[in-house]
Structures are given as C-alpha cells and as structure tokens.
Design a protein around this nucleic acid. Structure first.
Lengths: 242, 242
DNA sequence: TCCACGATTCGATGATAATCGAATGCTTAT
DNA sequence: ATAAGCATTCGATTATCATCGAATCGTGGA
C-alpha cells in the first residue's frame, strides 16, 4: 500500500499542482488554460501536471470542443485534500487581508460539491438534532420525518438514491473538525441552497457567503443563526490553499 | 497557508521517508540506524532525511548515549499520516500474506501511542455507549461514572489532566472511518491494556493482537466481543504502509 | 480552405534532491 | 588510552522533474 500513499503525497507536494488542486476543490470543472493561469505557469507545464494527476487518479478529464475540462476524480479526493489542510499547522497570519480570507473560508465554503465550514457543519448537526438525519457508521441515513422535510425543501431523495454515487456520506471538515454531509445528498442540498439564493459563491475562490435572505431563512426554517461578522461580506480574489 | 501543505506533502511523498514515518507510527521512538535499515538506505541518507523531517516539524529527536532516537513530533502528525492512509485508494491485494497483514492491521494497531483499528474504535464507542465518555466537539470528556470506572481500571485521570498534553482527543481511524480515543487518556488506556496483557504487540510492526485473556476480559468487563479470526494470531515481519 | 486558438507533445535546460563514499564527532566499552 | 560503534557532515554523482520554447494536433470560425 505504501507506494500509493507516496505517489499521492508527492503529487500534492508540488506548489503548482497543489494550487490547481485547490482551485478544483471549489467543485467546478476548469479548462487547462485557466488552471495554468491560476498556478502561474505556462500551458505546456500545466498540461504535463494535469496529465500526471489524471494518471495518478486525482483528476478526470472531459473534452468540450477545443477545451478540455478537468475536475477532481471523485469526492474522496476532495476529502483527501481537506484532510491535508486539517493536517498542516496553520502559519501565523501575515496580513489583515489574509486573515479575512481565512475567516471567510472557515465560515462557509464549497468542498468538492457540497457545503463545508461552520455553516456546513452547523446545518448538518442541526438536521441530526431535528431527527432528519441519522448518523450511521460513515454515512447518514434519512428518517421518515427527514424524507418529508427534504421533499418540502425541494430535494428529491428518491432520485438521488437511484444514482451510483454514495447517497449521504460523512465528510470530515478541516476547519471545524466535525463532520458535514457529503455525497449525493450533500451535493443536492448545496445545489438547492444556491438555487434558493440562501448562499452564493464569492467570486474568485471557493468561499461561500450567506445572503441576507439566507440568514433569515436559516433562522426561520431551522432555527440556525450566526453573528453577522463584517468579514462575511468581504470579497477577495486570491484565496490560497486553506 | 499553501506552502505549508506543500512542504508536508512533499516530505511524505518520498518512499524512504514514508517508510520511516510508518515505522514511527507504531508510537515508539527509534534510533536512526534502525530507521535506515527499515527504509533500506544507508545511515548517511537516513540522517539527511531525518534532519529534514525534524526541520519540517514532523519528528522530534532525543539523544540517549551514542544513539539518537526519533519519534513523531506530536499526535497531530500521527493523525495526519493516518488520514493519508485513509485517503489512498487501496490497491488490489497481491499475496495472501499481504491480505493477512492488512486484516491484522485493520483489527488492531497502535496509532502513535494509542489504540486504533476495529478494537480501538469498538472500545471507544462502547465507552461512549456506557456513558463513561462524552463526545464534545473534537474531544472527549469523562463523566462521573467514567471517573469511577477509569479509577477501578487503573487509569489515574487526575494525574493525566495535570500534564500539558491534550487530555482526550478524538482521532479519526483510517480503516474504520470512525473516531477512537487519543490524547493522554488514550495513551494511558493503551498502556494499561498492554500492562494487563489484554493486548500485545505483534513483533516487527505496529499491529496489535488481543490475547486470549483479553478476549475474555473485554467480553466480561465491557460486553465487547469479536469473531476470533485465524488471521489475528498471525505474525508478520514486514508490515508495509497501511 | 485557411486561419485562430486551445491543448498537447517533444526536446533541451536547469534546479533540486536522493544517494552513497569518505571523513569527522562523539559516546561507550575494553 | 585506545578501540569500536553510532551518527553526522561534506562532497561528488546521479537521477528526477519542473519548466519553457518550438512544433504539432484538433476544433471552430471566417
């Protein structure tokens, strides 16, 4: 088993590749050129890196016209990267700007294609508390009350269950060190939250902010509330790794 | 934050260093020469690697006579390595021997200095179930019934609390994907289990086996039992990474 | 058909780092 | 004191690989 761990670790242990992986952790597929620009390298070099990561099973490639889109191969890779973030000792903060970025990422972000950070964890735990979700080994199951709630929320659990993807996984959150919900159900929840405009992507990164509407809705529908820190509204371009 | 993740990942992403780290994951400190032998490299090369890992904060060094012992710098590093194991896709099993090794490691092993694997997780969850331990964010706390039980079991919680080390941490188990108990209390538990001869180290690796006495005692004292698979008694020399 | 553009391949370069032989320090044993 | 053994440092070698320029491939638009 050893060589596999070594291979993955060394793939991540390169600055350019790590930067690209972090971009992809936002959940969206991205064309090679964009990833090259993000990592600050030429398209040739990027192409080489991307090929290696596909070979190593970290990424999948999909061709659309003359563009080639890359995305994380599966949710496990997302988990892996999050786990590595959790591992790395946090460096002392350099700038106020950086601190804001960190705060915003800790508050809410996308992890592969579901919701992580304080908001993701709180939402998950609240749904457990309300009896909608049941923790079961490394997964969640949905109770009958839960089924009703998801239906009314606009998430079709039946359909999700029919897919090949894991239905509802527990995903360890690096900032909170608690589990949040992942898998098909986690992705569907996040998608619906975006759709309802309770949350929205912060341009240029994988941070997510809760809209005014979202704050009210979370409180009304689920009894969840957060102090509305100033940093939450902050927009930043260059979110680095964690 | 990025550079830190990259640095750690690249430190782990070298075959020789990874081999040494895995040896150290057994929890014991080891002299440089032994680590060199384990990794199949000369002492000079090993020395260079070890210096890098100390520099990178992964290892600590302690001199005893003409030997220099190395050990993991802290429990977080152990967590990190375990997490990486959980991340890596499991390769197809090559030999029956290898399969046995994996089974044995999954069943019970030391993680840094506490108990992991099926046994570690089951023990932890049983103690939560019995109300001795309470899950609290990323830690455990001990209830008053718990205090009594630990006392009777021969673990002095008072003394453990006085140390600088985290008292009782949740540690994610890569094979079970559930939490087991770590920190000072986890270490003390493991130590006491070795002392009582409920468990014993399998020579040559970090696998642990449950003794006959242990099987009976776990059942009698805690109502825990496992099917006594043949593989459990197997002894193997070369446990590789996972 | 021809051109523009994204992406990749090839080849060369340069930097990094893993490795080991030889020499040096330091500690214990005789 | 002298020898033996563990560990490290130094220097040289070698291999690996990230990087980019130039050329090629393939798709889409003119």
């Amino acid at each position: 088993m050893t060589p596999n761990v070594v291979e993955i670790a060394s793939l991540i242990g390169d600055a350019s590749r790590a930067e690209m992986l972090m971009r992809l952790l936002g959940g969206k597929a991205m064309p090679a050129s964009e990833l090259a620009r993000a990592a600050g390298i030429t398209p040739q070099t990027a192409s080489s890196h991307l090929a290696k990561m596909v070979e190593g099973g970290l990424l999948l490639q999909e061709s659309h016209g003359r563009h080639r889109y890359y995305r994380l191969a599966n949710q496990e890779i997302g988990h892996a990267l999050e786990a590595l973030c959790a591992i790395s000792p946090s460096k002392p903060v350099r700038s106020l700007r950086e601190s804001d970025q960190t705060k915003t990422l800790h508050f809410a972000r996308t992890c592969y294609d579901h919701l992580a950070g304080e908001v993701g964890v709180a939402l998950t735990e609240r749904m457990v508390e309300l009896g909608f979700l049941l923790e079961n080994h490394r997964d969640f199951t949905v109770s009958s009350e839960g089924e009703t709630w998801f239906q009314s929320f606009g998430v079709d659990t039946e359909q999700l269950r029919s897919g090949r993807r894991h239905f509802a996984r527990q995903c360890l959150d690096w900032s909170e060190r608690r589990h949040h919900i992942a898998g098909a159900l986690g992705a569907a929840m996040a998608h619906r939250l975006f759709e309802l405009l309770w949350i929205e992507r912060v341009p240029g990164g994988r941070a997510v902010s809760v809209t005014r509407k979202g704050f009210e809705a979370f409180k009304r529908e689920l009894g969840l509330e957060w102090e509305l820190a100033g940093s939450v509204q902050n927009i930043f371009k260059n979110d680095r790794m964690c």
